[in-house]
Computed example of a mutant assay.
Amino acid sequence: MPKCPKCNKEVYFAERKTSLGKDWHPGCLKCTKCNKTLAPGSHAEHEGQPYCNKPCYSALFGPGGYGHGGTESHTFKH
């Protein structure tokens, strides 16, 4: 039985969400930065961790952040 990469507990077939080549519990597949619930295939990945595409992944790992300094710009402090 596969284990969830977030909580390390067994993931049963009926409840699994497959993403990043792993099986997750639905409540465990969340953005690493903002904790937003993610849908398989509709998010980004960095070093094996899931991130929402905008604003988190773009702001953390994109070129200059999402919005590039405009009103939609998001900057996270590490």
Rank of each mutant, 00 (worst) to 15 (best):
P2V: 13
P2T: 12
K3V: 06
K3G: 02
K3F: 01
C4N: 03
C4K: 04
P5G: 06
P5V: 05
K6T: 01
K6H: 05
C7G: 02
C7A: 01
C7P: 01
C7I: 02
N8Q: 15
N8Y: 10
K9R: 13
E10Q: 14
V11L: 05
F13Y: 11
F13R: 13
A14H: 09
A14D: 10
A14I: 11
K17M: 10
K17T: 03
T18S: 11
T18G: 03
S19G: 13
S19V: 06
S19L: 05
S19Q: 01
W24M: 01
L29M: 12
K30D: 14
C31L: 04
C31I: 06
T32Y: 09
K33H: 11
K33L: 12
K36F: 00
K36V: 04
T37P: 07
L38R: 03
L38S: 09
A39M: 11
A39Q: 15
P40R: 06
P40L: 08
S42N: 02
S42Q: 12
H43N: 14
H43F: 12
E45H: 13
H46W: 04
H46F: 07
H46I: 00
E47Q: 13
Q49N: 15
Y51S: 10
Y51V: 07
Y51H: 12
C52L: 05
N53H: 11
N53L: 11
K54P: 00
K54H: 11
K54D: 12
K54N: 12
C56F: 07
C56W: 03
Y57P: 02
Y57M: 02
A59W: 08
L60A: 06
L60I: 07
L60D: 01
G62E: 10
P63Y: 06
G64W: 09
G65V: 03
G65Y: 09
G65F: 04
Y66K: 13
Y66Q: 15
G67I: 04
H68A: 15
H68N: 15
G69I: 06
G69D: 10
G69F: 08
G70P: 00
T71C: 04
T71Y: 10
E72P: 02
S73K: 11
S73F: 10
S73P: 00
H74V: 15
H74R: 04
F76T: 09
F76N: 10
F76P: 03
H78D: 14
H78Q: 13
